[in-house]
Amino acid sequence: MAPIYCVPLDGFPLKILHEIGSELGRTFHAPVHFLPEVDTTEQSYDHSRGQHNSSSILVMLNSIIPTDHARIIGITTADLFIPIFTFVFGEAQIDGPAAVVSGQRLTNEYYGMEANNLIYYERLLKECTHELGHTYGLRHCLSDGCVMRKSTYVEDIDFKTSEFCPECRTYMEAK
């Protein structure tokens, strides 16, 4: 399997990035490399919305990917949007190389609840696996619990597991 490059965006904590990256390497059976931090503010920050445009970040990630056929995932704490939506947890190119995930709306504090690092880490891992799954060509899955199931609320993320369902796993193994 081609390597996965993990990029910390806009000051995302490196410790969590490394933990998530290692886990992604195990899930996708791919070597993981970590790239230096990138500031996306100039390229993706929308002053009128106070959020980062995830599509612009994908363009930027495409421009820094070091090798062909590799995957690249940027993780940020900034809030992401695509033009028509109020927010997105992340975005990815189907069968493309790039994905981006935001941790901002994955914390308990964002919803006025007590911080819980374990829950935050689990949500982040699920979203990174989900978005990277799209870069390998997987679409949204209807199976309960499959990591590729669509999540529009944080509760949806908690409901699913960080694993692929047998059908999605078969697809990934054939890649």
Binding site: S55, I82, P83, I84, I94, H140
Partner: peptide
């Protein structure tokens, strides 16, 4: 007419198959 809207919305809906 806005490229950003149609492009991101296309990608979003394609993920639902």
């Amino acid at each position: 007419d806005e490229f950003g809207v149609r492009d991101s919305l296309t990608r979003w809906l394609e993920k639902d198959n």
